[in-house]
Nucleic acid binder design. Structure first.
Lengths: 153, 153
DNA sequence: CCTATAGTTGCGGGGAACAACCAACTGAGG
DNA sequence: CCTCAGTTGGTTGTTCCCCGCAACTATAGG
């Protein structure tokens, strides 16, 4: 069976990773000094709504320690608010502040512009299709990688 | 105009980055102890044929210093051979050794298997289409990011 | 009391950029 | 020719960021 397709996919994925990193790291500080990874956290909070640190870490597929530090920084910058969970004194609920929303909004616009410039000759249909396929891909990968109960270890 | 599409694309891209990293880092050492980044260099060499360090760095979109160190390690492991460029005593030509080819071959098979498992329910047509779109995306991004003469700074 | 869970902090490591550097290839003038 | 300035190919040192693991605290729940 044609395993070349998968290999090609892996290769292209790898390149995309690099380019994406360049994009976010170069066209600098899209998130107004926050950087791409913290920006990802903002985006996750926006999409998923207020949630606990562990949930956020799970969403982002990073270790809780990583999420903890990132969250701490965002809180310090006033982009995220942390309030105690009324049901559990150990836990905290993280949520975007008004500032966080604003920063994220501007960032989305800006990165959108950049991508739009690069992809000026794309039809919207193509773009949508790509997004759709990527979404499916991510879903399946996620399931394969962590859906199986094996912990991240 | 619908900038949501681009934002979604950015978000999905980011997630893919994370998942890809997990995949290569977890299903561990696909390249027999070489690791994903060095593997990428092997793949680039395979696809582009023997080339100079600078060309390789350009392909991979990394700084020459990074490529230099990676190449050095691959040479040390005997997966890549470095021979002097007859036309330029400063330069060297990097090329895969037989071992390098073998390792890469096995790695491609293995990562292909993993992806295939995760994407078992995909049709080959879908996969091909995704690869096609990704390739196009990468091409355009690359052009936008570094095609413009502005240096990386 | 004992175990499991939410989070934090202290390591350590890997990937990458930047800058400073050496070496060798240019390409004018003299 | 010859030399010297400028350019280009590579390497090394430093630093930074992101990450995972391990150890720890504190609360929850039986």
């Amino acid at each position: 069976m044609r395993s070349d397709v998968w290999s090609d996919l892996v290769d292209q994925g790898r390149l995309l990773v690099r380019l994406g990193k360049l994009l976010t790291h170069r066209h600098v500080e899209i998130y107004e000094g926050v950087g791409p990874t913290l920006g990802g956290m903002l985006a996750a909070l926006s999409k998923g709504g207020a949630m606990r640190l562990t949930a956020l870490a799970d969403q982002l597929q990073v270790d809780t320690s990583v999420a903890s530090r990132q969250a701490a920084e965002l809180v310090e910058r006033g982009l995220v608010e942390r309030r105690p969970d009324p049901d559990d004194a150990r836990a905290g609920i993280l949520d975007l502040t008004a500032d966080g929303h604003a920063v994220l909004q501007r960032a989305r616009e800006r990165s959108g512009e950049i991508v739009a410039a690069a992809l000026a000759d794309w039809s919207e249909a193509e773009a949508r299709q790509l997004v759709e396929l990527l979404t499916k891909l991510n879903g399946d990968l996620r399931e394969e990688l962590c859906g199986g109960r094996e912990r991240v270890r």
